[in-house]
Design a protein around this nucleic acid. Sequence first.
DNA 1: TTGTGTTTTAACCAACTGGTCAAAGCAACG
DNA 2: CGTTGCTTTGACCAGTTGGTTAAAACACAA
Lengths: 199, 199
Amino acid sequence: MTKPATRIQKKNRTAILAAALEVFSQFGFRGATLDQIADAAGLSKPNLLYYFPSKEEIHQQLLTSLLSAWLDPLRKMDDAGDPIEEILGYAKRKLDLSRDYPRESRLFANEVLQGVPHLGDTMPALKTLVDEKAKVINGWAKAGKIVAIDPHHLMFLIWAQTQHYADFDAQVRAVLGRDDPFPEAFAFMEHMLRRTLAP
Amino acid sequence: MTKPATRIQKKNRTAILAAALEVFSQFGFRGATLDQIADAAGLSKPNLLYYFPSKEEIHQQLLTSLLSAWLDPLRKMDDAGDPIEEILGYAKRKLDLSRDYPRESRLFANEVLQGVPHLGDTMPALKTLVDEKAKVINGWAKAGKIVAIDPHHLMFLIWAQTQHYADFDAQVRAVLGRDDPFPEAFAFMEHMLRRTLAP
DNA sequence: TTGTGTTTTAACCAACTGGTCAAAGCAACG
DNA sequence: CGTTGCTTTGACCAGTTGGTTAAAACACAA
């Protein structure tokens, strides 16, 4: 039997996770402090530790709930659909993720930058999914629907380009001298992908 | 008159900077500790602080010496050369940087992820250089040598893709299941850029 | 109102943080 | 050899870190 989970618990837990996401994504795991997180959540530090047993626990919870949402766009890539439109759709969904959830993107970037110390054991699952989709792409290539291409590096290309707009936001803004690069970013990506993939 | 700088000083200073690069690039500024750096450099903490006045000073020195090397490949892009080959050459030089100096790439990634808190004042210089090169690319487009394209987003594409192999190394290795993705990475990038840029 | 379980907090702790300082060790030149 | 200046270190410091504890405050149903 699980505990009931009161209204207050629900409210505070989500407030803590939101605050922790903000802080962890900006400073990384070691760089973030419980005081910062508690402050951002509007709670005292002991009160925060009443809801979560440790700093690591909060971080882990954020990471795991991130991962499923992160891989979802790739899972949705349909091997029965039109190849180029499917790949383009995937890229667009991934770019939307960068625009709508930049903190999540940065949290993930921090984790990978440090060598995936906290979700190293979920990497095999990632590899499985990617290998599976790589086979689909290879099938499309063999059928002459798209150019023959290394599907893994295509994946890296899409990941790199989409996440760049969230993770390197500070640089993008500094270079462009204004906000919201996303409309042009998508137009650019579409041009690039269509030409790269055309058979 | 500047100080002579003995043999020992030179040796220890470079050892410290190398150690600091290793640690900062993995844990970020806040996540890194002087003890870690001193350990990695084979010195005691007070001894380390005999050569550098503070943690920030070490970090700053690494960042500034990084930046010039980082922008060099872009500076070398020659507006008198063949457009597509020039852009391709730039991308290759940038990818070589990721392969040969991955820690520098990660140090930079950490800095930008956190919103360029330490080199925010050098961003205008970056923008100036990029805008200048963007004009060159626009010129090539107007001359019909390459397709009409947003030069800033082309820059982002090259940055994102090349740095991905250094910054997300852990993920790349996990997905590929082996090391050294760079030969294929360059072949892939060449294919992608040639098709993207063709007039 | 009272009793019960939930929520919050003040006070505290040991370990660690960046950094200091005075004294000791050391190289090397006269 | 001895002195001079460079190098290294042990001891130390104040502030911060993640985390604990016991008691107080609170919500709320009977």
